[in-house]
Design a protein around this nucleic acid. Sequence first.
RNA 1: CGGGGUGUAGCGCAGCCCGGUUAGCGCAUCUGGUUUGGGACCAGAGGGCCGGAGGUUCGAAUCCUCUCACCCCGACCA
Length: 570
Amino acid sequence: MRQSEYFIPTLKEEVTDAVIPSHQLMLRAGLVRQVGAGIFSFLPLGYKVLKNIIEILRDEMDNIGGQEFLLPALNPIEIWEQTGRVEAMGDVLFHIKNREGLVLAPTHEEIITFHARQHVKSYRDLPQIWYQIQTKFRNEPRPKSGVLRGRQFIMKDAYSLDSSLEGLDVSYNKHYQAYHDIFDRCNLNYFVVGASSGAMGGRQSQEFMVESNAGEDICALCDDCGYAANLEVASSNVKPVGRLDNNDEIEMFPTPNAKTINDLIEQFGLPEERCAKSVVYMVNNEPLLIFMRGNDELNESKLQAIVGTNNIRPAVSEELIKFTGADHGSIGPINLKTKIRIIADNLLKGANGLVSGANKDGFHYKNIDFERDCRIDEWYDLRTIQEGEQCPKCNSKLRVVKAIELGHIFKLGTKYSEALGATFLNSEGVEQPIIMGSYGIGVERILACYIEQNHDDKGIIWEYPITPFDVHLLGINLHNSDELKKGCEEIYEELLYAGFDVLFDDRDVSAGIKFNDADLIGLPLQIIVGKRNYDNGNVEIKNRRTGEREIVPIDGIEEYLLNYEPKSDE
RNA sequence: CGGGGUGUAGCGCAGCCCGGUUAGCGCAUCUGGUUUGGGACCAGAGGGCCGGAGGUUCGAAUCCUCUCACCCCGACCA
């Protein structure tokens, strides 16, 4: 491709709106342009990369027996009502205003299940892996970070249909392996974490993550044993509070100015670990009293998984007074005004000598013995782990990092097949719901994450196979020498003929502009054709990543390129 | 949805507090000339409903009200 005829609007200056490197460089290198919040056009160069990524996705999905569909973005709302997701998705789901009854699909479990219901009738029809690579629409409350979080984005989503849980495991594992192959081929540094399968009855779920400050997920990592988990489910080894030898009688004492755990510690000199925090949540509008160590943070994801719904929220003051008899700061397990289900964090199991609210404003109890003085209905891991705590597997120190979710594999189970009546007859002639898995990858996220991990202060650094072109041919000051121009054209033609995808900077601009644009665009190798070297029968080849330059004879260019890396398969 | 910020030429910005000729600067663009291996130089030119609506005023980019858009932090994130 001749750059003089190709649309690559590079920007010399920084773009103020772009905060993270990938967003900045995608704009400056001419890959994308923003049209609205979370809405982007891919320009030819950016789309070329996207297509390379999609080809890898397609290849690996086909490798595990996936069959590609083209599914509609416009969906009848009825099918979404049947699975309860119109309500569950809320404002995230785009509704068509001038055509009642249609929504823009944010994902495709419903449509896939719809087709399965139509045609999958027997266990002999299973298993199946169906996938698509298409645009999804989600009315994100806050699009951000360039293409990392858009209202419209391309997703590879796959769905497995199986007749048994064992079959689901097989399908799931195939995807697990395919995802590794995909992200490896894209040269990404990533890790896999155990993730929350949500409140809606999934079985197992893992996320493929890229560590990044631009990420919206938080993960715990153990660099020693490889333990990795989303903070939503991460656990750690922390010593339980345990029992004190002297078990004094429970005693109420006035605490008029103590509203928080820190107040109690400061005003009464109490040891932090003996202060129990009580939190009241409304779960499906029923109160639930939760006990944690004083300064631990309740993990709402864990709570959602325990109570089996995501309809939870902290209780407000009126509710606290109504159910416990006291407001914030004085709530505890003893003397509750009404009977409330009480759960507590595992670290408090069997503890005594505890301090907690007396359900009377301005009073606390001390010397509470959870075994002697009150009723705890159940014990769970409820806390959010902290940086530096011990790995649950090997006791090394855990790191807590921000991460971008690239992909998610998820054993769905029968939620959608049951809701939509997608059933089959098993070998005994018994009707059963199809057992499903769901597997998504954000296509633009691969691109953005790659740039996050492969750039320097000059620009992007591409590698095979996702690089938009194999090589950048830079003709320096061609208009000064007909011979040089002719020679450069010949090199271009020969490389094309040899099957290389070449971007040829034949523009009539100064050398500095070409060098800087080339570094910004970031093709892996630059073949620099200048008069001095050319007159000696040579060109200079620069490695974008290392900056190393080599003088190479013109008839050795092809060999050099072939030895550098396998050329992209276009 | 809460908090903060920004809308002035294709891009990046100044001007706004404290209202007053024709709204400015850099980059980019066009013409001519000189340059030519890391974003050249000289001379000239084009390009604006100062986000939109309403108001105050003799007079509004500037003050007031409303509104729209975008960015950041938070909430949310199937």
